[in-house]
Amino acid sequence: MSRDIQTLQKLLASSSEELKKVSNKPFHPNALDVVVLRYAPHFYNEEEKLQINNFKQGSSVESTSETNSVTGKSNVQEMLEEEEEEERIIPINKRPKKEISSPHLPAKFKNLNLFPEDDIKFVMHKRLFSSDVDPYKNRLSMPKNGIACDFLTKAEVTKLSERDGKNQLVGVEVTVLDPCLREFSVLLKKWDMDTTHTYNLSGHWKNIVSINKFEKDQELKIWTCRVNNRLYFLLVYR
Score class of each variant (00 low, 15 high):
Ser161Asn: 09
His125Thr: 12
Glu66Leu: 12
Glu78Pro: 11
Glu81Tyr: 09
Val35Asn: 14
Leu50His: 14
Met79His: 11
Lys137Met: 09
Arg139Asn: 09
Ser59Cys: 10
Gly58Met: 10
Ser59Val: 04
Asn45Pro: 05
Arg127Gln: 02
Glu48His: 08
Ile52Met: 04
Pro143His: 01
Arg163Lys: 10
Pro143Asp: 15
Asp119Thr: 02
Gln77Glu: 12
Ser69Trp: 01
Asn45Ser: 13
Gly72Trp: 01
Lys159Val: 03
Ile90His: 10
Asn138Pro: 12
Glu99Met: 10
Val123Tyr: 14
Gly72Glu: 07
Ala155Leu: 11
Pro106Met: 03
Asn145Gly: 13
Leu112Asn: 10
Asp33Ala: 09
Glu66Tyr: 11
Leu128Gln: 07
Ile89Thr: 01
Asn111Gly: 08
Asn93Asp: 11
Glu86Thr: 09
Ser102Glu: 05
Glu117Ser: 05
His125Met: 05
Phe55Asn: 09
His125Tyr: 07
Pro91Met: 00
Lys137Ala: 05
Asn138Lys: 04
Ser63His: 10
Ala155Asp: 13
Lys94Ser: 12
Glu47Phe: 02
Asn75His: 04
Asp164Lys: 01
Pro143Gln: 07
Ala40Pro: 10
Asp132Val: 03
Phe109Lys: 01
Met142Val: 00
Glu46Phe: 13
Ser65Trp: 06
Met142Ser: 03
Lys108Phe: 14
Ile92Glu: 15
Ile100Cys: 15
Asn138Arg: 09
Phe115Pro: 06
Ile89Glu: 05
Val133Ala: 02
Ser74Trp: 00
Gly72Tyr: 00
Glu47Trp: 04
Leu128Cys: 09
Met142Tyr: 02
Asp132Leu: 00
Asn93Val: 11
Arg127Trp: 00
Ser130Asp: 06
Arg95Leu: 05
Asn45Met: 04
Lys94Met: 10
Thr153Ala: 13
Asn93Glu: 15
Leu112Ile: 10
Thr158Cys: 15
Asn111Met: 02
Pro41Tyr: 03
Arg38Met: 10
Leu140Val: 01
Gln57Trp: 03
Gln51Val: 12
Lys97Ser: 15
Asn75Tyr: 11
Phe55Ala: 12
Glu62Leu: 09
Val36Ser: 10
Asp33Ser: 08
Glu78Gly: 15
Glu87Gly: 13
Leu112Thr: 08
Gln51Lys: 03
Thr67Phe: 14
Glu85Ala: 03
Val61Arg: 14
Arg38Leu: 12
Asn113Tyr: 05
Val70His: 14
Thr64Glu: 14
Leu50Cys: 07
Lys159Glu: 09
Glu117Asn: 02
Lys121Ala: 14
His104Arg: 07
Ser131Ala: 12
Tyr136Val: 11
Val70Met: 14
Gly58Trp: 01
Glu66Ile: 07
Pro116Tyr: 06
Lys94Asp: 08
Ala40Asp: 08
Glu48Ser: 07
Lys166Ile: 06
Phe151His: 07
